[in-house]
Design a protein around this nucleic acid. Structure first.
Length: 498
DNA sequence: CTGGGGACGGGGCCC
DNA sequence: GGGGCCCCGTCCCCA
């Protein structure tokens, strides 16, 4: 026979013990503030602590001290309260940092709730839109943030306080609290996008930003001895973090000044960069894939915002990106911009598989990479014709050499091929060395049954506008080799739509 | 190590 | 609204 209240009472007792500092055998030092807790509770709640405490479990006679500098004491208080009560106090101001801390501490339940909270914050229904449009920027900037209390499903029954359930876990409960957009987001779970996003971000940020690091764990009798661990960390997180905060403070101030009334800003507290938010969103397997098209049509009310206007001027309508502070004048531009957040690349190069966000980028790529459009010998800089020179490929670069320079360069091993011979330069070179981005798209390339066709006609640019949801509806535009060199799509007779 | 150039991504804006 | 052009910034490779 199961007594349902036992778990709750047990946790309640543990929480009381924590508050009274009874049997606490773990001290957590967060930016100088000490939190006391029980190892077993932390072990059971956090993957981070599980790993940490299992490593230090041999010396159980001494209290464990964990030191963190990557989140604030207030944030850790929220998390610790959740651990001991099942109640998560989220606000628009703390959700990002709580999510970051939860991600760090490997607490997936909190992560899910935070992501859901953010998603719901991104939704603005028609009522709110009308509300914003009817009020001036001044009058809407003072609405206090109401904390939302998220309760663990296990404790939802006995909690008298208002709580939300995670839609993923309990569909149907509190449906009004969650927009269709949020449901849409939750239903679009794709792991591959997360990997792609992470690899992309990692590549881009590799030199620019340092990952935040915790400052270590010590096990000693004296709390003060936790300090040397901080000094020992070469990649000092306070320094890097301050830099990140300052960076985003500046960029977010712009958006806040103009669009302070927009609720979307609540979901992105000013201390966080957009990239950081994306990283947090993409760190977990549940990262959602958003297609710009669907995103655009599924949440139209979030996009149109009214900027503040000067005296005597008519209000200027701009469109704000829900994921960052960027605003654009036209909806189409926003739609285009959204692709940089969703990672959607609807224009694959049929020659090499690389995908692009825009047709023009694909066009430029094809011209420069696969056609070596410059009729100049790269070595002697003289003009070459298709008779006096040929195209060679070195790595990912493709260029022309005159026959003379080619002979001098001794490029026999690189298998240069005559441009007019109709051989597949791409396939021969791609077989030798696959670029990094090609590897990323490897899985998708495997599904391309028509790629061989493209390789047989290496000088035709085949543009396929993909639609992942409707794979049968594939739009292809094939440029003839001659017209492709010009890339004038207005000459529609050269397009083959299949 | 450094500077130059290529490739690429993204924004603004025109047609 | 879509397509396209221009411009700029960033990253990477190479000499």
């Amino acid at each position: 026979m199961e007594i349902s209240s036992h778990q709750f009472h047990l946790l309640e007792q543990l929480n009381e013990q924590r508050k009274q500092d009874l049997f606490c055998d773990c001290n957590i030092l967060v930016e100088g503030k000490v939190f006391k807790a029980h190892r077993n509770v932390l072990f059971a709640s956090s993957g981070y602590f599980k790993m940490l405490l299992s490593q230090s479990s041999k010396e159980t006679s001494q209290p464990t001290i964990a030191t963190f500098e990557v989140f604030s004491p207030e944030t850790f208080m929220v998390i610790l309260d959740f651990v001991y009560s099942g109640i998560l106090s989220l606000t628009g101001q703390n959700v990002i940092e709580v999510m970051s801390a939860a991600s760090y501490l490997q607490m997936t339940d909190i992560l899910s709730v935070c992501k859901t909270f953010i998603k719901s914050s991104l939704d603005i229904n028609e009522k709110e839109k009308d509300h914003y449009l009817s009020l001036s920027a001044k009058s809407t900037s003072t609405e206090p943030a109401r904390p939302a209390l998220y309760r663990s499903r296990r404790k939802a029954k006995s909690n008298p306080r208002r709580s939300y359930s995670v839609p993923d876990e309990k569909p149907g409960v509190n449906e009004n609290s969650w927009s269709s957009y949020g449901s849409y987001l939750s239903s679009q779970v794709i792991l591959q996008r997360a990997e792609t996003q992470l690899s992309k971000r990692g590549r881009k940020q590799g030199s620019g930003r340092k990952r935040r690091k915790h400052l270590g764990l010590s096990q000693s009798r004296d709390l003060g001895q936790g300090k040397p661990d901080r000094a020992g960390a070469s990649d000092s997180s306070p320094t890097s973090r301050v830099g990140e905060e300052a960076e985003f403070d500046a960029e977010n101030d712009v958006g806040r000044d103009d669009y302070g009334c927009h609720r979307g800003s609540e979901a992105v507290p000013k201390r966080w960069s957009v990239t950081q938010l994306e990283q947090e969103l993409s760190r977990t397997p549940e990262f959602v894939e958003l297609k710009a098209e669907e995103l655009y049509t599924s949440m139209p009310t979030i996009l149109g915002v009214m900027s503040s206007w000067n005296e005597g001027d008519l209000p200027r309508m701009r469109f704000k990106c829900p994921f960052c502070t960027h605003t654009v004048k036209r909806r189409a531009d926003l739609k285009r911009h959204l692709r940089c957040h969703t990672g959607e690349r609807p224009y694959p190069c049929e020659a090499c598989g690389k995908r692009f966000t825009r047709l023009e980028h694909l066009r430029n790529h094809f011209q420069t990479i696969h056609q070596a459009g410059k009729l100049i010998c790269r070595k002697c800089k003289r003009q070459v014709t298709e008779l006096t020179g040929c195209v060679v490929q070195q790595g990912t670069r493709r260029y022309r050499l005159c026959h003379k320079c080619l002979a001098e360069a001794s490029l026999d091993s690189s298998t240069p091929e005559d441009f007019d011979a109709g051989h597949s330069l791409v396939s021969s070179s791609a077989g030798n060395k696959r670029p990094k981005w090609a590897l990323e798209e490897e899985e998708e390339e495997e599904q391309k049954s028509d790629e061989e066709t493209a390789e047989e006609e290496p000088y035709n640019l085949v543009v396929r506008h993909t639609n992942d949801d409707v794979p049968d509806e594939v739009e292809e535009k094939t440029w003839n080799s001659v017209t492709a060199s010009k890339y004038h799509p207005e000459s529609t007779e050269n397009h083959k739509i299949s």
